[in-house]
Design a protein around this nucleic acid. Structure first.
Lengths: 225, 225
DNA sequence: CGCGATTTGTGCACGTCTTCACAAGCGCCT
DNA sequence: AGGCGCTTGTGAAGACGTGCACAAATCGCG
C-alpha cells in the first residue's frame, strides 16, 4: 500500500516523542486515516500488535522499513540539474529517509563538472558507468519534458527499473519498470478546481468559517475527485 | 476528477501539433488511460464531442479550463524560500499553466529582501497584507516540517482555502479548506517498495527484458498498491 | 437519398477499497 | 484466580472506480 510510508513517518515522529506503543486509533489520527483501515493495512502485511495494548512502535518501524525495502540505503541517480534538480540535490529530506543521491547527471556539458552539495555533475552519457559503480536502483528525472523520454530510455537500457518523473509528460517504458510521476502544476490545477467549485457554490453556506479563529481543526480531510 | 489536468496537458500538446480533433482513443493513449474511462470522464463533465468524428481540441481545452477554473490566472503565495522554495519560485512550469507566483514569504528575516526571479522575499508576518493586495487564492508551503502547521494556520486565518503542502507532515485545517500534499521522500519509498518486491521475486521470471532494446514500450503502466 | 464506417455516450457487471461492527485475546486490578 | 476494560483482527456490507460491450448518432460517399 502507498500509505505505508506515511505510517512510517508518523511512527518515527512518535518514537522521537518517546512513545513505546501506539494504539491503532492514535496512529490513525496522527496520519489522518480511519483506524480500521490502518489495522487492516497492518494486519495485511503480517505485522503483529498485542490486543489490549497496541503496537510496539520500534517493532513496527522495523517491520514497515523491511517491507518497503529500506533496510539498505538505496542509491538514486538524479538526471537534470536545472532549477528543480538543484533543489532536489540539496534536499536533505532524502538522506534522512534512507536514500542517498549518488550521482548527478545532465546533458548540458556546460553544467558538467559543477559541484552541488559535494557531488560533481557528470554527463548523462556516463550513465552506464555511474549506475554500475554506484549500484543505482532508482532514477529521478528532473529534465524538461522534451528530454524526459530519452532519459527514461537510457535509464531503462542500463537496468534501472524504478523511475521518479518530475517532467510534465507521460513516459513509455517496458513492462516491469515502475514509473511514478510528480507534476507540480497538476497539483495546483486540482486545487484550482476545488477553489473554483467552492467559489461557484453561489447558494451555499457562504463563508462558513469567517469569525476570527480557525474553526474545528479537524483531522486532515481527504479530497475526493 | 484528478485526471482532468492530464487531459488538458495532452490536449495542449495536440493543439500545438496542429490537430483539430481527437478521438477518445487517441487522447486516451496519449494520456495512458482506458478510452472508455476518458469518455466517461468527459461526458460526466457535460462536454460534447461529435460521434463519428471525435472531440474538438480547442473546444475541449476551453471546457476543461473552465471546469478547472483556469480561465483566470490564479495568484499563489509561496511560503518558505529554502532549497525547495527557491526551485519552485524559479520553476517556469507554473506560469505557463495559468498560475502566477505573486508573493514569496519566509520567517527567516535574513532572507527577507532577497530577490528571486524578480520577486522580493517578504516576511511571513506580512501575509495578511500580501493576500489582500494580490488576491491570493492558493498557498504553497515549502517550509521545514515543524513550521508547516503554523504557516497553514496563518494562511487559513487570512482566508486562503487551498494549500499545497511540501512539508513532510500532516496538516490539520478547518473544514472547507483543501490540502494537497506532495512528499518527495514518500514517492521514493513507494518506488523502493516495488524495487524490493521485484528483487525478492526469487523464483520469478528472472530479468524478462534483458535483450538490448526496450521491449514492448507499452503505455504508461499504472502502479497499484 | 440511403448506406456503411466510425466514434461517442452509457448500461451493466466486476473487482477493489472503505467502513462498520463485533468476536477474540491480552493485561491489569482485585 | 477471575473478571473487566481495552485493543486488535476480521467478516460482511456498502461505496466507488473500472472496463466491456453495444446502441445511438454523425459524416462521407455513391
Amino acid at each position: 500500500m502507498s500509505r505505508l510510508p506515511e505510517y512510517l513517518r508518523a511512527l518515527h515522529a512518535l518514537a522521537d516523542a518517546g512513545h513505546e506503543t501506539v494504539s491503532s486509533e492514535g496512529l490513525a489520527s496522527a496520519v489522518g486515516v480511519n483506524s480500521a483501515k490502518l489495522r487492516k493495512d497492518l494486519s495485511h502485511l503480517g505485522s503483529y500488535g498485542t490486543r489490549g495494548v497496541g503496537y510496539d512502535v520500534a517493532l513496527l518501524i522495523d517491520q514497515i522499513s523491511s517491507v518497503l525495502g529500506l533496510t539498505q540505503c538505496r542509491a538514486v541517480a538524479l538526471v537534470g540539474v536545472g532549477n528543480l534538480g538543484h533543489a532536489l540535490a540539496g534536499y536533505d529530506g532524502f538522506a534522512s529517509r534512507g536514500f542517498r543521491i549518488a550521482a548527478l547527471l545532465d546533458a548540458d556539458r556546460s553544467r558538467v563538472g559543477e559541484q552541488i552539495n559535494g557531488l560533481m555533475v557528470r554527463h548523462v552519457d556516463e550513465l552506464p558507468r555511474v549506475v554500475a559503480e554506484e549500484s543505482i536502483s532508482i532514477g529521478v528525472i528532473a529534465t524538461p519534458a522534451p528530454a524526459a523520454q530519452a532519459v527514461a530510455d537510457q535509464l531503462v537500457a542500463v537496468g534501472v527499473t524504478s523511475i521518479l518523473n518530475f517532467a510534465p509528460c507521460v513516459l513509455s517504458v517496458p513492462e516491469g519498470v515502475d514509473v511514478r510521476k510528480v507534476d507540480l502544476a497538476i497539483e495546483l490545477q486540482i486545487l484550482s478546481f476545488h477553489e473554483h467549485r467552492k467559489a461557484s457554490l453561489t447558494g451555499g453556506t457562504a463563508l462558513t468559517a469567517l469569525p476570527g479563529g480557525l474553526a474545528t481543526p479537524d483531522t486532515q480531510e481527504a479530497i475526493g475527485t
